[in-house]
Design a protein around this nucleic acid. Structure first.
Lengths: 231, 231
DNA sequence: CATGTATGAATGAACG
DNA sequence: CGTTCATTCATACATG
């Protein structure tokens, strides 16, 4: 999945065709909206670049090894609360582990053998504390939840009909893009607005780290069905 | 090129709100495309924020007065008056809905059947956007919280929900990045929680450098799906 | 604007 | 396996 880079300029064109072809159920954006998006992204890219540059030259001057990293972060575990070694009560997969798990899940069609689980556990253990049970549960849960999502939300037929013609307030645009409805959204060459939902940095970092930009799809399992191309 | 391309599953609307769309100059995007875009941007924002924060704390320690501000990275952005794209990331019951929910909760002793939930959802939908999942979650949460309140009331056993005090967040909006100020995105050095790998500037820079922002959906489970249109 | 609190949602684990 | 519980995270909202 390729994405915007510094020169976002042209990329958008494709989208038009792409989307248009799909036709039937789709959101529509005006050229202005697209333009807004394009600029927004371009600006972000630019800022990122600048920041990085700045940081580079800056930190280069003060190569204070050691303190440079990990510093800004709070150790989530021994937070100032001081009391117990706030060791988690329940296992939480690290991004790396998750990545692996998801990959395997896909490979095994969600049902790895017992041996497989054991092997995995060993491997996963290299990336953080984990037990066989954890792995087992994880698979179990994932299967169950995926399933539920599929059956429970056969967003099907009868329903959609009904609301389709109501289509006024409820079941309108998903929150995810409500921003586009905002009439105040305006774009001036220097003034671009766009909502920035709070996506956990850890997720992002995690994915980036492991997949290294290329991203082997952990993908939105819930609701996505197009990810059968990974191995 | 593989741009956001996917299966569509929603109708589009919002046309009437944007007069421009009415006719000819409209581009079409699927929901997934939109979602991907949104996330892409979110990631940019997040990374920028992160970078700024890091830079800030980094430079702060050396009192390199002057160069910290006046920066290149503030520039043109929304100087301040940023409106907020009405962003609702999570469902919030309307008073009416709440009333109904509570009534039913009492009736069902907290545990309505699946069918019941479905019916309710339909009814509740008349009073505002809602989905079956919302209702389901609502009951879950209510049961859990009521239970807890009854058993171990105060701070002691309920530390889980009470221990949030551990993290003090000071977030002094860096003048340099006011542009990123967003009510929903408040990532600071103190509230970032890295599950395991402590990733520093290097990683981010590295990725950015190389890929110039190639990104794939990091799959923020929260707020991702679950917005089925059953409701 | 900063901080605290209520609560929707995600998810590991447990249950039947 | 499907369902439910328990814990935790993150955000909406109220407050000083």
């Amino acid at each position: 999945m390729e994405w915007i880079n510094s020169s976002v300029q042209e990329k958008q064109q494709q989208q038009e065709e792409n989307g248009a072809v799909e036709g039937l159920y789709a959101k529509v954006m005006t050229d202005e909206q697209m333009e807004l998006l394009r600029k927004q992204i371009a600006v972000y890219a630019m800022i990122c670049e600048q920041l990085v540059d700045m940081h580079k030259s800056f930190s280069a001057q003060y190569d204070i090894a050691g303190m440079r990293l990990g510093n800004p972060y709070l150790d989530p575990f021994m937070s100032s609360g001081g009391q117990k070694f706030t060791t988690r009560q329940r296992w939480t997969p690290t991004p790396v582990q998750l990545q692996i798990l998801e990959r395997v899940y896909d490979e095994c069609s969600g049902n790895p053998g017992k041996q497989k689980i054991l092997d995995m556990t060993t491997e996963l253990a290299h990336h953080g504390q984990i037990s066989e049970t954890n792995v087992y549960n994880w698979f179990q849960n994932r299967r169950a939840r995926i399933k539920r999502k599929q059956s429970g939300v056969p967003s099907n037929t009868t329903e959609s009909e009904a609301k389709k013609h109501v289509m006024s307030k409820k079941y309108t645009t998903p929150e995810s893009i409500q921003s586009f409805e905002n009439p105040t959204a305006r774009i001036t060459e220097n003034n671009i607005y766009f909502q920035s939902p709070n996506i956990g940095m850890e997720q992002i970092i995690g994915k980036m780290d492991v997949a290294g930009m290329v991203y082997s799809p952990p993908l939105p399992h819930w609701q996505m069905d197009r990810y059968d191309m990974l191995g």
